[in-house]
Amino acid sequence: MNTQKLLSIFIIFAVLTCTFMAVGCTEIDNEDDIIEAEQDEEIVASPDEIIDIEWQWSGLTETFPASQSVVPDPENYKITLRSDGTYSIKADCNIGSGGYTMEGNELTLAPGPITLAYCGPDSLDSQYLSLLSNVTTVSMEDDQLVLGIGDNGDRMLFVKGDVAEQ
């Protein structure tokens, strides 16, 4: 009888182990689905929606560590993508320009000439320029321009400013 009890306990343990493993796999799949759904919320930006508009940097979402910050003076940090493949920027007291390529939701900003004035200790000009140099994607989300930074999921958020002068 001892052997039967031992065999029953072993079978129960094996069934429980398989059940927990199956539940664990299901949860991982659900998390993947959630991540995919969140990524689907971003809409590929059509050139007509983003070209020749003065976009103002309003916020930054970072993934590691997770944080979201608001830019105190968005009108001091602007980017305008032009239809001829060039862009112009304002980084607080500095201005610059360069070229860009956009294919689907992939965006690459090539550096160009920029002024290098010291804008003061509270300026975000260095951070802004550093982030722009690592842009990899572009999309629209809730009428905001979203520039993806690198491969880690960081995102720069821009609100619409004026229609840019030609």
Rank of each mutant, 00 (worst) to 15 (best):
E31I: 15
I43G: 02
D32I: 10
P47N: 15
N30G: 10
D52W: 04
S46Y: 04
V71H: 03
A37K: 14
D32N: 15
D33Y: 07
S69D: 09
E41Q: 05
Q68V: 12
P65Y: 13
E31W: 11
I53D: 04
Q56V: 07
D73E: 09
E36W: 04
I50Q: 01
E54V: 13
F64W: 11
E38T: 03
E42F: 15
F64H: 10
Q68D: 10
I35T: 15
A37W: 12
S69F: 03
I51H: 05
E54H: 09
E31S: 15
S58P: 02
D52T: 05
Q56M: 09
D29M: 10
Q56N: 07
I53P: 00
A45W: 00
V71D: 01
S67E: 11
I53G: 00
D32W: 06
P72R: 01
P47W: 04
P72N: 10
S46F: 05
N30V: 11
F64V: 12
D29V: 09
E62W: 02
D52V: 08
S67T: 13
Q56F: 01
I51G: 04
I34S: 05
Q39M: 06
S46D: 08
P65G: 11
W55K: 12
D32V: 13
A45R: 03
E31L: 14
D73P: 02
D48E: 15
E38G: 00
E38F: 03
V70C: 06
E36H: 06
A66Y: 03
E54G: 08
S67W: 11
I53K: 03
I53H: 01
A66M: 00
V44W: 01
L60T: 00
L60M: 01
E54S: 13
I34H: 10
G59F: 00
